[in-house]
Amino acid sequence: MASPRIDPLTLEVVELIGTVVSRYYAEYDQAAAQHSLTGAQARVLGLLTLEPMPMRQLAQKLKCEPSNVTGIIDRLELRGLVERRPDPHDRRVKLAAPTEEGTATALRLRESLDFAREPLARLSADDRATLRDLLHRMLGEDAAEA
């Protein structure tokens, strides 16, 4: 049985999303390198500034193996950007958390990202809100939940 054809508009939207993602990652990796970080290290540090979390949860968010995350955390810890601390709810679990320097580095990195800021500045506040809501719908999320 042949798979149904995707309409040209859907193909164009998929291509545009791919272009946006590609540009975002290229700039993110470039900004990370300016802070002597790999893109993966920068993403982990960014996630940890939102909330400390165990390696397993980081791995789930990054869609990779926990052993990969452990290596990233080890390198960030050596640089003084991350520390491991006991989970206050379960002392058997270790949480990765940013240090003060790690939080400052993540903030500087975020501020150096022009890709999202420049193209989004071309959209009105209403357009940005509509785009946000559409992206939440695409991900099967209620905008109020996120």
Rank of each mutant, 00 (worst) to 15 (best):
L11E: 11
T130A: 14
G46D: 13
M138Y: 14
R56G: 00
T49R: 13
L47W: 07
L134Y: 05
T38P: 09
L81Y: 05
P98W: 03
A104Y: 01
L95A: 02
Q30R: 13
L135Y: 06
A146V: 11
P54R: 02
R132P: 00
T70P: 02
A97D: 13
E12V: 07
Q60M: 09
R132A: 08
M138L: 15
L131K: 07
R137F: 09
G71A: 09
A96S: 08
R75F: 03
E145N: 13
Y24W: 13
D114C: 07
A59Y: 09
N68D: 07
S124Q: 05
P4Y: 10
R56N: 09
A143E: 06
L120M: 15
E27K: 11
L37K: 04
R117S: 10
A143Q: 08
D133N: 14
R137Y: 11
G18E: 01
L58F: 06
L123W: 08
A146D: 06
A96E: 09
I73R: 02
E101A: 15
P88R: 03
L131W: 05
G39H: 12
E118I: 10
I6N: 04
E101W: 04
G102E: 05
A143K: 11
Q30P: 00
M138G: 09
D133Y: 03
T49L: 09
G46W: 11
V14R: 12
P4G: 03
E12I: 03
Q30E: 12
G80F: 15
D133L: 03
R23P: 00
P119D: 01
R84G: 07
T19D: 10
R85E: 12
H35M: 08
L109A: 01
A121E: 11
R91D: 08
E15G: 08
K61H: 10
D126I: 02
E141S: 09
V13M: 13
M55A: 13
R91P: 08
Y28M: 12
S3R: 12
E100S: 14
A26E: 15
A40M: 05
A2L: 15
T19A: 15
M1Q: 07
V82R: 02
A116S: 14
A121F: 08
